[in-house]
Nucleic acid binder design. Structure first.
Lengths: 193, 193
DNA sequence: CCTACCGATCGGTAGG
DNA sequence: CCTACCGATCGGTAGG
């Protein structure tokens, strides 16, 4: 049963393994041979599933975005207060950026520039949806008087602060993800009223 | 006169040109041939000045840090109020991250991971000095009650917000550097009292 | 998906 | 700093 899914398992294997290798070594530091070997294929076989190495990169990023969008959408559309909504969004985002086994979005953050213009445009469609969710929540914060800033720049600064953690966070050292989320929210919004 | 400086001009040329190319195309997207050609050398000649391509990368980063440190130190040691000091530091940092012709620090932010462990350790010494300046100013903000957060994480989040702008800032579009600095400061510290 | 391979690129070097 | 070059790597492909 479930033949349809099984048929595509090899492609999914390639994407998952590529995500891990790209995150660890970077796009240029990973060869298609590395990826093939890691899933038990011969060196040319990834190109049966993907037209080019860059298509694998785009697939990794798209996988990360489509996997992360539902949770973020649920938060944005929930009945939480603006502050709680923001806190939840920050926490969920930290998970996909820093969480164990979550390699997809870090690859997007590290190697966005390695995409060809065409692929970048394709992935950007999904990225826009994600950014729009943040924009909506930031707008709610502004409307509630919890944040003072130009709305677009505020979002970019906030997301930058969070995303940049991919460069300094070390699992098991210092604060955990819950604590970082709390620090970030209280730094941006001030202490709870 | 000034022979000593003139002798090293070719090396300095290589570093300056490499910085521009690395920023535009990334470390892996730039060949040593590209760099040689851009300064009017033959393909093998950069290796008369540098032992390896990675040594060029390290030189670019060290140039950026040593050029940026004096201004930041002057701000940190000045008699400005904590808030003014922070504002000045943010503005100065935006300049070396986003300012025209300032390619060195963006290269550091983009391609830090391409350094070998040995070179990374060498450049880290300078980076630590820069980070310490920020830490000091952040500590002053905390002491003055202008910022509520764990000190180390606060610095990382703040620097992340600023550094990440290298990925979204487009010169001539949207806010200019002065305006971004103001937005950032008022978002982090709240409106001026 | 494998076999067998190519064509180009690229960092780096010897010798001058 | 140039000439001339190597040795390895790598993305990608034809044919099955």
């Amino acid at each position: 049963m479930n033949q349809t899914v099984a048929v595509d398992n090899r492609r999914a294997d390639l994407v998952r393994v590529a995500a891990r290798l790209f995150r660890e070594r970077g796009f240029d530091g990973t060869t298609t041979r590395d990826i093939a070997e890691a899933v038990g294929m011969r060196s040319g076989s990834p190109f049966y599933h993907f037209k080019s190495k860059q298509e694998i990169l785009a697939a990794v990023m798209e996988e990360g975005l489509t996997a992360g969008l539902p949770a973020a959408e649920a938060i944005a559309e929930s009945a939480l207060s603006p502050r709680e909504k923001f806190q939840a969004l920050v926490r969920a985002h930290l998970e996909i950026v820093l969480g164990e086994g979550h390699d997809f979005i870090p690859v997007l953050l590290y190697d966005w520039r390695r995409l060809t213009p065409e692929l970048r445009e394709r992935v950007q469609v999904l990225r826009d949806r994600y950014d729009q969710l943040w924009q909506d929540v930031v707008s709610e914060l502004l409307a509630a008087g919890l944040l003072r800033s130009d709305s677009a720049v505020a979002r970019l600064l906030l997301m930058g602060a969070i995303n940049y953690s991919v460069l300094w966070y070390k699992p098991g050292q210092g604060l955990n993800l819950d604590q970082i989320a709390e620090e970030a929210v209280s730094m941006f919004l001030g202490p709870q009223p």
